[in-house]
Simulated assay, not measured.
Amino acid sequence: MEYKWTIRLFAGLNERLDASSVELNTQHSTLTVAALKKLLIEQFPSHQHLIHLCFVACNQTYATDDDTINHTDELALLPPVSGGEESAPEPSTQTPEDALPLYWLTDQPISVEDVTRRVITPDHGASIAFVGTTREWTAGQRTVRLEYEAYAPMAVRTMEQIGEEIAARWNGAQCAIAHRTGIVDVADISVVIAVSSPHRDECYEASRYAIERLKQIVPIWKKEIWEDGSEWKGHQTGPWNPLADQVQP
């Protein structure tokens, strides 16, 4: 009996393979992640290097090479993340039910004031908003615009994870993150991260932690469009490993 495996693709992968997903047929209903990647490399040998660098997400959670996965799982092959259809705000874990979400994706302009307002509370005396914008010149090359793609449900889930880590490390500090998808022009805002805490020192630390952690684990990809070409950009500060320990502030 053969089992069909469906693996979603994102960013540079779906462009290179000219597909949003690929299918494999095997006689195995379960495989290790390493075995799945080996089968993908056998099917697409010219993309061996890129597939080797990718991580597999199983049911919207990063999986290790030794993890066992099932052909019925929701699977995705994720290239190195950016160092970010109109997506409606995903439900967050906060309460009450009618509260505004703290983590969301949108293809519309982001309001810094809106994001910041969501983390200001009576018992916090400090708040900071980190605002990421499209830079026009990088290493002598002129950027015309950026295009962002996200694995939306997993992106929101990992942004929520960042908020939980921050609250645990900095005595209940609050975090909110909004990230653009689609086209973001030069000088436009691509991401806003707002953090609040009782005191300013921990607020500074938590804000830096949030952006570095976002680059490390959130499946959002950035395509730089130049005057003479384009390129998908992944994490550029070292080997990409979303399963690594939390970043140091």
Score class of each variant (00 low, 15 high):
P153L: 10
R180W: 00
P239Q: 13
Q48H: 14
T72V: 10
P219T: 08
F10E: 02
G238R: 06
V218A: 09
H235V: 14
D66C: 08
V56A: 11
L243C: 15
Y62H: 10
I166W: 03
V144A: 12
I166Q: 00
G83W: 05
S20L: 15
P109Q: 06
Q246M: 11
W104R: 08
Q48C: 04
V218N: 03
V131N: 05
D201G: 09
E90A: 13
V56Y: 02
R117S: 15
F55S: 11
P45C: 09
D67W: 03
E97F: 12
A173R: 04
A206H: 11
A34K: 10
N14S: 07
K38M: 03
N14D: 05
L77C: 02
T134V: 15
E74D: 13
R200E: 09
V144F: 06
L77I: 01
L40G: 12
L214Q: 00
I69V: 03
P109Y: 04
P239D: 14
Q48F: 06
V22W: 03
L78F: 10
V81P: 02
S197C: 01
W137M: 14
R8G: 10
F55D: 01
F44V: 00
S196L: 06
S207H: 02
A63K: 03
G12T: 12
A206I: 10
Y3D: 01
W170S: 14
A57M: 08
R180V: 00
L214I: 06
S92F: 02
V184M: 02
C58K: 12
G83P: 04
V144D: 13
G229D: 04
V56H: 03
V81L: 05
N14E: 14
C58R: 15
L214Y: 11
Y204D: 05
A168S: 13
Q174M: 09
V115I: 14
Y151H: 10
S92Q: 07
L100P: 03
I177V: 05
A35Q: 15
T95E: 13
L243Y: 00
F130V: 00
Q141I: 08
P242G: 01
E113A: 09
T116A: 10
L31C: 12
I166M: 06
S196F: 07
A139N: 14
S196M: 11
D188C: 05
S21Q: 11
P239S: 07
Y151T: 04
C175D: 02
Q216V: 05
K37F: 10
G182R: 02
